[in-house]
Computed example of a mutant assay.
Amino acid sequence: MEGISHVTFVVRDLDRMATFLCEGLGAEEVYDSLGRNFSTSREKFFVLGGVWIAAMEGEPLGERSYRHLAFKVSAQALPEFEQRLRALGVEIKPPRARVEGEGASLYFYDFDNHLFELHTGSLEERLARYRLAC
């Protein structure tokens, strides 16, 4: 196992997802099938934080859940991301309860009910904090 290859989201509107990912989160669009579908439908590829994200046209999630994709960001960058996302009309969720020292998070939905998180902490920091609570 080498790691995660890519993450795919099924979305109703590829251009709207491109705006969300590029303008809202700073992704770079690197591919658009433009009718030359090599997969099951039209798709676009993006790179965000070194992660390959694929978006494919289709019927998105019917309901929301806590399943989500989280990206690591600095605490200083979190307010800027929130401002950019709000400017796009993205729904920001209220923060969940946290113990001090596990980092801060910004949870938000894209336009197709996918939940994302921007998180300032690391796995090591969270495990260390949880060990203190035991």
Rank of each mutant, 00 (worst) to 15 (best):
K93G: 07
K93R: 14
E125Y: 07
V30W: 09
E82W: 06
A55C: 15
W52P: 08
M56Q: 07
P79H: 12
F9E: 04
R67W: 07
V99G: 03
H114L: 01
A87M: 07
E117T: 04
F38C: 02
V51W: 03
E29N: 12
K72D: 10
T120G: 07
G35M: 04
D110P: 08
F71N: 04
E124I: 05
A87C: 10
V99S: 03
G89L: 14
L123R: 14
F111I: 06
S74C: 12
F111Y: 13
G89D: 14
E124T: 09
L127C: 08
L34K: 15
S65D: 00
L34G: 11
M1G: 14
L48Q: 01
F20L: 15
V30M: 11
R42T: 06
A87T: 09
R126I: 07
G24Q: 13
P79S: 12
E43Y: 04
F71Q: 04
Y107F: 02
H119R: 06
G103P: 00
E125K: 04
G26V: 09
K93I: 08
R42I: 05
S39T: 07
R16M: 06
A77D: 15
K72L: 11
I92K: 11
Y130A: 05
A54I: 13
E63K: 00
D13E: 07
P79Q: 12
G24L: 14
Q76F: 13
F45D: 00
F111V: 04
K72Q: 10
E117R: 01
R86K: 13
D13M: 03
L21M: 15
R16P: 13
G103R: 02
Q76R: 14
E100W: 11
E100Y: 11
A97P: 05
R64G: 01
L106F: 01
K72I: 10
H68L: 03
M17V: 12
